[in-house]
């Protein structure tokens, strides 16, 4: 086996075992042939020093994603994972959209545009953006709202492009702020950015092979989400200073822990709720990672002890509900057939 073949086979390991059993040798043969130049010396050099091009690696990667995060025609196990990733992505984008809407409402309120609401107390001070470009960057975050709508309505690529409008300027703003601002370097904005970026990439799982997103429940989830999360949170934080101990990563932990508890209690058949259980396990892992990664920032704050205690409580809560749910979900997953029986492409002599 040449070094080139070894390298290519290493890339192919991204593909599921069942698929490889059927196609790997064929793929290797075809790949090696695409690199043959007809000149013995060049071929020998390539066999030793050649590498699969980025485009070839990318094509294998996208095939691996399609096979593992399966659509409607995929075998049960990849399909369950596919559904789980899609539900987790939709929930994540929904949360971004909900918070963007809430942020927009708060800004309007502070500017006095919502005159039917009681005027903000002096505690709520509007920090004006330092410059007009910063204001524009703040505005870009609201792009999550149209991104969510586009994703639910089946325009996945549009949704990704719009979400990029939210993520990219934010990344620039964070980098500039952290490099030039007076505040010390913090982990939180980078961790949030990383999650948003992951969400943007993971939106690819809502591909054309998957069943279309159920529009009505997801569209309804937007107003319900706004009423259920930011509105009470906003009111509670305005009236009860103690609740300000709940930061964004903490809120993610609380939300996912509550959702997992509901799932555990309400689920009669683990197999039927499997996609949601897996999706919540994925979301819990993300929330937990975000919580733990942002702990150093808490250590630098005045209310350090109270904040750290709250954070520890959040971690314990997520683990206490998340671990049993993960056990139930993975057990149900094991009951599903993993891959189709590896059959050779059959010959029909006609």
């Amino acid at each position: 086996m040449s070094r080139l073949e070894e390298r290519y086979r290493r890339v192919l390991r991204l593909l599921p075992v069942g698929y490889r059993r059927q196609w790997e040798d064929d793929m290797v043969a075809a790949f090696l042939e695409t690199l043959q130049t007809g000149d013995a010396e060049t071929d020998e050099y390539l066999a030793d020093h050649g590498r699969p091009s980025l485009a070839e690696v990318a094509s294998v990667m996208s095939l691996a994603v399609r096979l593992r995060i399966g659509g409607a025609d995929a075998p049960p196990r990849p399909y369950a994972w596919g559904q789980a990733v899609r539900l987790a992505v939709l929930t994540g984008v929904l949360l971004q959209a909900v918070m963007a809407t809430a942020g927009l409402a708060i800004t309007l309120w502070l500017y006095g545009a919502l005159s039917w609401l009681p005027a903000p107390t002096s505690e709520w001070v509007l920090v004006p953006p330092a410059s007009s470009w910063q204001a524009t960057l703040n505005l870009a975050g609201y792009a999550w709202l149209p991104a969510f709508l586009a994703l639910v309505l089946g325009h996945r690529r549009v949704a990704q492009a719009v979400a990029a409008v939210a993520v990219v300027p934010q990344a620039v703003a964070v980098a500039v702020e952290q490099a030039t601002g007076p505040a010390p370097l913090t982990v939180t904005p980078w961790a949030l950015l990383l999650i948003e970026l992951a969400l943007l990439v993971a939106m690819s799982a809502v591909h054309s092979d998957a069943a279309p997103v159920a529009r009505r429940p997801w569209l309804l989830a937007l107003p319900i989400g706004i009423l259920a999360v930011p509105v009470p949170l906003f009111l509670a934080q305005a009236t009860m200073p103690a609740l300000r101990l709940l930061d964004w990563p903490g809120m993610c932990c609380v939300l996912v822990a509550v959702a997992m508890a509901v799932n555990l209690v309400a689920s009669r058949s683990p197999l039927r709720t499997l996609p949601w259980s897996l999706a919540l396990v994925l979301l819990a892992a993300a929330a937990l990672a975000l919580r733990i990664a942002t702990l150093p920032d808490i250590g630098a704050q005045v209310q350090r002890t109270a904040l750290l205690t709250t954070a520890a409580g959040q971690i314990v809560a997520v683990l206490a509900v998340g671990v049993p749910l993960a056990v139930v979900a993975f057990r149900a997953l094991r009951h599903l057939p993993p891959v189709p029986s590896a059959e050779e492409p059959h010959r029909t002599d006609s």
Binding site: W23, M27, A30, S59, M61, S62, L63, R66
Partner: peptide, 15 residues
């Protein structure tokens, strides 16, 4: 055609 997309298509077409 990249090999990954070729065999993605072949797999489906055989299926």
């Amino acid at each position: 055609l990249k090999i990954g997309s070729l065999y993605g298509a072949l797999d489906r077409l055989v299926g």
